[in-house]
Amino acid sequence: MTTPPRLSPLLEQYDFARERLTARLTGPVMDSGDGSDTKVGSLTDEEYLWEPVAGCWSVRRRTDGPGARATFLAGAGDWGRDAASYPHPWPPPFTTLAWRLSHLTEMLALRADHTAGTRALTRDDHAVSGTAAEAIAAFDTAAGAWRTALLGADDAALDTVGYCTYPHGSDAEEPFVDIVWWVNQELLHHGAEIALLRDLYRERGPRQG
């Protein structure tokens, strides 16, 4: 299928954001933004689960229960992501790198399924990763699934309201092209948050000099 002209720049932006975030998580180098390579180490389990402030929301073993102000652990498997029913706690809890990456991965996986899959998966079906390596692999799989779903969309699909039936966003009220734009925004802003957390982790602790 030929990619609709309206979709091409959004797809290119998505690919760039995905590649940049993956490199930021895995190394050995990442795009610094000016075309040069910057060395970066691969994400470790300690960094993945690092809680920079008290009361963070994160991903946790189910046997440990939810964290502060969370009422349950979302997702499937031995690990879950801190969550609470509406209304959510205010001010919002600070979320760890693990929480943000899990949230982003779940969104991509479920939106892909509700666009070009079974259109039946829920948050309860999505496995939460307890290690950095598992989380990066899950993100790559989900990001690839969303890209495949985009490649199946023609011009008519881009204009179709409710083409994606994802139940946790505005998908039922907006044309699919607007949802594609929104997913890019999610990838860009959560990717930036994750990059900042990596910088903070690198600089944690007392400075000398």
Rank of each mutant, 00 (worst) to 15 (best):
G169P: 04
S58W: 01
V177H: 12
R60W: 06
L21S: 06
I179M: 13
P87R: 02
V183Q: 06
I179D: 04
D45L: 10
H126I: 15
C56Y: 08
F94K: 13
C56G: 09
T118G: 11
P89T: 05
A195L: 11
L25M: 11
M107R: 05
F72V: 07
A70V: 04
I136A: 03
C164P: 01
S129R: 06
C56T: 15
L104V: 06
H190S: 03
Q208P: 05
G33M: 00
Q208E: 11
W182D: 10
E46S: 12
G41F: 01
P4K: 04
L200D: 14
G144C: 11
T3V: 14
G117S: 10
E46V: 11
S129H: 01
P4W: 02
G77W: 08
D64V: 10
L21E: 04
V29E: 12
H189M: 14
P91H: 12
H103E: 08
L25R: 08
T118V: 10
F16A: 12
D34P: 01
S170K: 12
C56F: 07
R111M: 13
R147I: 09
S42D: 03
I136D: 02
R60T: 07
A192I: 11
A137C: 02
D15V: 07
P52R: 06
H88F: 15
L150A: 00
H126L: 12
E47F: 03
T165V: 09
H189C: 10
A157H: 04
